[in-house]
Design a protein around this nucleic acid. Structure first.
Ligand SMILES: NC(=O)c1ccc[n+]([C@@H]2O[C@H](COP(=O)([O-])OP(=O)(O)OC[C@H]3O[C@@H](n4cnc5c(N)ncnc54)[C@H](O)[C@@H]3O)[C@@H](O)[C@H]2O)c1
Ligand SMILES: NC(=O)c1ccc[n+]([C@@H]2O[C@H](COP(=O)([O-])OP(=O)(O)OC[C@H]3O[C@@H](n4cnc5c(N)ncnc54)[C@H](O)[C@@H]3O)[C@@H](O)[C@H]2O)c1
Lengths: 233, 233
DNA sequence: TCGATTTTGTCCACGCGTTCACAAGCTCTT
DNA sequence: AAGAGCTTGTGAACGCGTGGACAAAATCGA
């Protein structure tokens, strides 16, 4: 399994906070626990949870230990209880209103996606500058004018935004988002945005994902030619 | 900036290979160099490149040093030359044929996306099981039957696949991909796939991205209430 | 009640990744 | 030709993340 995103550099573990690497895995555990709960499972061990999430059991236990001691030795973890604790830690006891900027192919797919609701994410608005798109409907949400950004951010208490515009427009959009008071940006445009320190940025670059896989594929074939595959002694 | 993806655990730097963290940044540098080249820039320093990619200059130089000594002290890097060297290292001197499984919202958006070509990625096929979708056209590519997977992988020399099916179908799809000879999988379904060790898996989970941002937002407001913002002495 | 069994929580060691700091090396000016 | 001024490449220190190992704690059966 592979997780690649870059968070603000140098921000590893905060004051009293949970290590960044752990935060990135908690949603994984949460989802797995949800699946177990649906299957009627009431208790599970670190080994079982580690199995389905592809994580080392010791690492998983250490991750959970940052939240507190919610397990029972000799028994494991209560699925529902642990689920609640992780959800609380992640801030999923409340719903986060998110604005999506750019109602193109990707923005529309995201707007249509029904899987965010159960993760505490709600699409508050979808914005675009294209008059042709404004007023159209994506996933039950009406596309609104990008001009209304500041107003919408204020009225709907939005702090998280998704950028799904072409790369050329992304920096301008980011500036407007920051000016409107957004403090977390999920950026799908293939650019590193310049944002103030207090704004969290995550770049999701699908080309890069494939390029990384291609690199490993290349190395694989290259190694074969070199006899790079280690021979057993 | 934030990169989150999980690679096979424990695989840091390989035998003669480049550290995983560096590999994940190389495409970033490559793109920035492309932008500079378009702008007519022929030479750039580590400082300039670090600026636009949001990376520490020393880190950037160390990253590049894994490829060789391609810079000139006192001058910087030749944009075109460095571009070629990174592209070569990433395996972008060849084109990688990729199969997309699942022609739904996300799969269609990916198929339509025109930005992969310049990154050495070509969509060899888009597959689906839904008879309604098979034969339809997404981004100039005809959707083919998932039954033809093995045949297509063999004939078109595919080693990389994208999973864009519902989560319930993802493991089955992955098994079929592995059986067909695919060795790298980019998975958009919210599940950790169980694949053999020799298969590289990268999970891109958009919900998790937003959940991580929400966590930081929550901590932010929580800290404010606690007066968590450190006061200058 | 006691011992066998299971599983957590965490100490500890190790390795990767990051960053500082500076010597080595190049160019340009005088 | 020599020195001033930059910028690279890297040694070294440090910190975070990972995973092995085991003591502590809980359950269960006898
Ligand atoms: N579609 C994919 O699969 C894919 C893959 C990788 C990366 N991306 C990236 O994601 C981003 C979006 O991709 P897409 O395929 O949806 O593009 P798209 O062209 O389909 O959609 C872009 C949308 O953004 C709108 N827009 C342009 N400028 C704007 C502005 N200033 N403010 C608000 N809206 C604006 C456009 O009107 C359009 O509706 C791009 O940066 C692309 O590089 C997309
Ligand atoms: N759309 C989004 O923005 C978004 C966001 C986050 C995650 N995801 C995830 O990405 C995946 C795809 O999302 P989507 O919105 O495109 O879903 P979708 O329902 O629109 O499309 C899924 C497609 O997969 C096809 N399919 C089903 N079983 C298949 C099989 N066994 N083999 C081949 N094809 C099969 C279906 O026919 C359908 O065309 C899902 O797992 C979803 O959870 C999507």
């Amino acid at each position: 399994m592979t997780l690649l995103r870059s968070a603000r550099p140098g921000v590893g573990s905060n004051d009293r906070g949970i290590p960044e690497a752990t935060v990135a895995r908690l949603p994984l555990y949460l989802r797995a626990l949800g699946t177990l709960a649906e299957g009627g499972v009431t208790t599970c061990s670190s080994g079982e949870l580690a199995e389905v999430t592809g994580v080392n059991p010791a690492k998983l236990r250490k991750d959970l230990s940052y939240l507190g001691s919610y397990g029972t030795r000799g028994v494991g973890y209560d699925v529902e209880y642990l689920r609640y604790q992780i959800a609380r830690e992640l801030g999923q006891t409340q719903t986060w209103d998110v604005v999506i900027v750019g109602a193109g192919n990707l923005g529309s797919a995201l707007s249509t996606y029904q899987g965010f609701g159960s993760r505490g994410i709600s699409i508050a608005a979808v914005l675009d500058t294209d008059p042709q798109r404004i007023g159209s409907n994506v996933g039950g949400v009406e596309v609104e004018s990008f001009d209304r950004l500041a107003e919408i951010v204020r009225e709907r208490h939005v702090s998280i935004a998704v950028v799904a515009t072409p790369a050329e427009a992304a920096q301008g959009v980011a500036d407007a988002l920051v000016a409107a008071g957004v403090t977390s940006i999920l950026n799908f445009a293939p650019t590193v945005l310049q944002v103030p320190d207090h704004v969290e940025q995550r770049l999701v670059d699908l080309s890069i994902e494939l390029q990384i896989l291609a690199y490993h594929e290349q190395r694989r074939t290259h190694d074969e030619a070199d006899g790079g595959q280690e021979v057993m002694a």
